[in-house]
Design a protein around this nucleic acid. Structure first.
Lengths: 212, 212
DNA sequence: GTCTGGTTCGAACGCTCGATCGGTCAACCT
DNA sequence: AGGTTGACCGATCGAGCGTTCGAACCAGAC
C-alpha cells in the first residue's frame, strides 16, 4: 500500500476535486453499481487508466465523495453553531444548514444518502462513524430542545431524530432546486413542520415572519 | 412478445410469488444492479435459465416486485379507509397502514423506495403512475385535515406530503423490526410527530393513551 | 405405450466491467 | 547531458453479467 501517496500539491488536489464532483454526478444519476469508471473517464476527458492515479479503486472513489461531503456539512454546521445559545435556534440552524447544503450539492448528498450501502468493510465503517457523529449531534440538540420547551415525550429521541433526517433526506426524491419553492423557504417549512407539526400549535415558536 | 403468456395457474402464481419474495430480499440486500440473476438462481434452488420461464428480464422482475407490493399497500389502505370519516383518523390510518406494511415487508418496501430509479422507460412510467396515485391520495387527505382543523399554512401541501413520506420511508435506513420499539408504537409516534410536531400542541388530537 | 404441453435445465454467447502493466513525455534537478 | 519523477495513456486480462437455445423431464390424456 501507499504505492502512490497523495502528493497533495494544490493542482493535484484541484483536479481530484473536479473528478470527485463529476463522479458524484454520475453516481447520483445512475447509481454506484450501474455507473462505470469508463463513464467517468469519458465525461472527465481522462483516460481510463489515468484515473487510477487519483484513486486506488472505485470503492475509494465512492468513499472520498461521501466522506469529504459529509465532513463539509458538519464543519459548516459547527461554524454556524458558534454563538448560538437557544436550543430551538440551534435546531433551526441545523435544518437550514442540512437542507441548504443538500440543495446546493444535490449530487453528493444523494450519493451519501443513497449509496451508503454500496460501501464495503472498512469504507463502510468509516462512514458509519461519521454518520453516527452527525446523528448524535442532532439528537443532543433535540434533547436540549425538549428540555427547554414544553415538549412532551411525543416520541423517543432516536425516533424523532430519524424522522427529522427522513424529512430532510427525502428531498432528493422530489425536490428540484430552482423550483417555485426556494431553498430557504423549504428549509423553514421543514423546520416548522418538525417542531410544530402539520396542524401546528397556537403561538409559541421563534420567527414571527410569515407572509407569503 | 407474449411468447409465454402467464398461465395463471395457482401453482404457477404461487411459485412466482416465492421467487419475487426471494428476489426482493436480494435486491434489498445488495441493490438491483449489484444483485445478479445467478444470486436468485442459487438462493431459490432453480437453474439460471429456469428462472426466465417466470419473467422475461431482470427489469420485469424488478417491476413486478415494486408494482405488486405498492398495489397491495394501496388496496389494503382503501379497505381500511372504508367507513372512516374524520380526516385526522384517515391520516392516522394511512400512516399506520404504510408503516405497518413497511415493517412487515421490509425487503419489498426497500426495493420500492430505493430502486425506483433502476426502472427504465415503460417500467418507470408504470410505477410513476402508481406512485403518483398513492401520493395524491395522501395529499388529498392532508387537504381535508387542514380544512377541518385549525391547521394553518405551515407548509404547502406538496411539501408536507413529501415530508410525511420522507419520515415514513426513511424507516428502512434505521429501523429493525423486533427492536424495542414495536411497529404500532412507531407508527403512532410518526403520526403524532407529523400532525403535532416535536414540540407538540397542548391538548387536541385523538388517543389519550400515553404511558410508557 | 405414446403423445402433448407446461416446466426445467446445461451450455454457451456476446458483452462490459474493474483493474493492471509497461511505456511515454514533459519538467525539473544536478 | 543525463537522470529522476510526477502525470498520464493504450492495450489487455480475467471475471462476471443478462440472456438465449435446444434438449430433456414429467404429469395426465388418449
Amino acid at each position: 500500500m501507499a504505492e502512490h501517496a497523495p502528493p497533495a500539491s494544490p493542482e493535484h488536489e484541484e483536479k481530484l476535486e473536479r473528478l470527485l464532483g463529476i463522479a458524484a454526478e454520475i453516481f447520483a444519476e445512475k447509481g454506484y453499481h450501474a455507473a462505470s469508471i469508463r463513464d467517468l473517464s469519458k465525461r472527465a476527458g481522462v483516460s481510463l487508466s489515468g484515473l487510477y492515479y487519483y484513486f486506488h479503486s472505485k470503492q475509494e472513489l465512492l468513499l472520498m465523495i461521501q466522506e469529504r461531503s459529509l465532513r463539509k456539512v458538519m464543519d459548516e454546521l459547527s461554524r454556524k453553531l458558534e454563538g448560538v445559545d437557544r436550543p430551538e435556534e440551534k435546531l433551526r440552524t441545523l435544518v437550514h444548514n442540512h437542507v441548504g447544503f443538500f440543495a446546493e450539492n444535490m449530487a453528493a448528498m444523494r450519493v451519501i444518502t443513497h449509496e451508503y450501502d454500496a460501501l464495503e468493510g472498512e469504507c463502510r465503517a468509516r462512514m458509519r462513524q461519521l454518520r453516527r457523529e452527525y446523528s448524535n449531534l442532532c439528537q443532543e440538540i433535540l434533547r436540549e430542545v425538549r428540555r427547554f420547551t414544553s415538549a412532551g415525550d411525543v416520541a423517543p429521541l432516536n425516533v424523532a431524530t430519524s424522522a427529522l433526517f427522513g424529512m430532510m433526506n427525502w428531498i432528493y426524491a422530489w425536490y428540484t432546486p430552482g423550483s417555485n419553492v426556494p431553498v430557504e423557504r423549504l428549509a423553514e417549512h421543514l423546520y416548522r413542520l418538525f417542531t410544530g407539526g402539520f396542524i401546528g400549535h397556537p403561538s409559541t415558536s421563534s420567527a414571527g415572519r410569515k407572509a407569503g
